[in-house]
Simulated assay, not measured.
Amino acid sequence: MNFNASRNVGHSGGIRKAKRVSDVSAMGAPSPTPAFSPGPPYNAPYSHGTPPPPYQEGIQLDTTQNFASPGPAPNYGYMGGFPQTPMASPAQLGSMLQQPIVQDMAFQYGNQLAAQGKEVVQRELSRFVPVSRMRYYFAVDTRYVLKKLMLILFPFTHKEWMLKYDQDSPVQPRYDINAPDLYIPSMGYVTYVLLAGFMLGLQHRFSPEQIGMQASSALAYIIFEMILYLVTLYITNTNTNLKTLDLLAFSGYKYIIMIGSLLAGLMLGRTGYYCSLVYTSFTLSYFLVKTLRVQVLSGSGSSPAAPYSDPWPRPSASGTKRRVYFLLFVAITQPLLSWWLTYHLVPSSAVLPVITPAR
């Protein structure tokens, strides 16, 4: 029902009676009546049984706590809150070590330690020994070894003595028969020591001291050779393309003729020894002159690998003479040292008996 107060006042100043509105649609639809619910309006999840205590200022002390009583003893062996467990017995430790998981962990740890030790050894060894350079001198195969032995014993038919180069570095010995190597000298040294002991045993002169003296003397003489060659090059101020390991390789090739001469003396006596020594000395000198000539006479000014440079520079007359003298010096000292290290091992007559076929 709408009531308008201004309309109830008449012209005469009295109050007019309000009219009832019969049109219900003009008043708007009535609001719906809420459904009846007998329960509470909401279900509270938690309700306090008693009201909270009023707020109080200050700190409330617990009068029941006794501060004079001693606390629990500290435990430094174990962390607080964890129970103390007894130590494992040796039998339990042994059974634990037998577990496959523990053995695998120990094996992996041992491999790691071995790998670390290997790296340390290689790093310390590379400071004193050029390991990467040594690999070049041992890069050989069976075909190369056989051809190199034939070249040392029969060098007269060989025509090409130049080294082969791959860009600025020489190729490995297995691909170039003229390249120096350290495999044949090292194997020749071991074979010479064993053959010397065998020949001394056939002559009833063998003893452990004798074979030790043969090994040490052969090693000492090759070190003496190296020092002699390097000092000669330094004093004469001769520049070459030879490296120290190259000189060591060429100095070790004399073991081939030493072994051949000892075998000849073992079968034919001193006559066969001297005949074999003369021939092999001549072939070794020829081989050394032809091989070293490429690197000694070329000097260090240019590399034979350069395609557009002169592979044979023209040094001064005095420089050429010094290089030629050095070649002759090497070619003479190698046969002399071969004779010095082998002549006392040769018997006066043939030791090996001649086998005749049975009738």
Score class of each variant (00 low, 15 high):
F3P: 00
A5F: 14
A5P: 11
A5E: 15
H11I: 06
I15D: 08
R16H: 10
K19R: 06
V21I: 14
S22Q: 12
D23K: 10
D23E: 14
A26G: 11
S31W: 06
P34Y: 02
F36A: 07
F36T: 01
F36Y: 12
F36D: 06
G39Q: 11
P41Y: 13
P45S: 12
Y46T: 04
H48A: 09
G49N: 11
G49I: 02
P52S: 04
P52D: 02
P53Q: 08
P54R: 07
Y55L: 01
Y55E: 00
Q56F: 01
L61Q: 00
T64K: 10
N66V: 03
F67Y: 05
F67E: 04
S69K: 07
G71H: 00
P72A: 09
A73G: 05
Y76I: 01
G81S: 08
F82G: 02
P86N: 07
P90E: 03
P90W: 10
G94S: 07
Q98F: 01
P100H: 07
I101M: 13
F107E: 14
N111M: 14
Q112Y: 13
L113P: 00
L113S: 06
E119Y: 10
V120T: 13
V121A: 11
E124K: 06
L125T: 04
R127K: 14
V129Q: 06
V129G: 07
V129W: 02
R133D: 15
F138M: 13
R143L: 12
M150C: 11
I152Q: 03
F156N: 06
T157S: 10
E160T: 03
M162P: 00
Y165N: 12
D166F: 13
V171T: 08
Q172N: 11
Q172H: 05
R174I: 03
N178L: 02
A179I: 13
D181A: 08
D181I: 02
I184C: 04
I184K: 02
M187G: 10
M187F: 03
G188H: 00
Y189F: 15
Y192M: 12
L195Y: 10
A196L: 02
G197H: 05
G201F: 13
G201I: 05
L202A: 14
S207H: 09
P208L: 08
P208Y: 09
E209C: 02
E209T: 08
I211V: 06
A215Q: 02
A218D: 11
Y221L: 08
E225W: 08
I227L: 15
Y234V: 10
T236A: 12
N239G: 14
N239V: 06
T244K: 06
L247K: 04
S251D: 11
G252S: 02
K254L: 07
C275Q: 14
V278R: 03
S281C: 04
F282I: 11
L284C: 01
L288Q: 04
V294C: 05
V294P: 01
L297C: 11
L297A: 09
Y308F: 12
K321N: 10
R322F: 09
Y325S: 09
F326M: 04
L328N: 11
V330S: 03
Q334K: 05
S338F: 12
W339A: 14
W340T: 07
W340P: 00
T342M: 10
T342V: 05
Y343D: 12
A350Y: 06
V351M: 15
I355V: 07
T356F: 07
R359S: 13
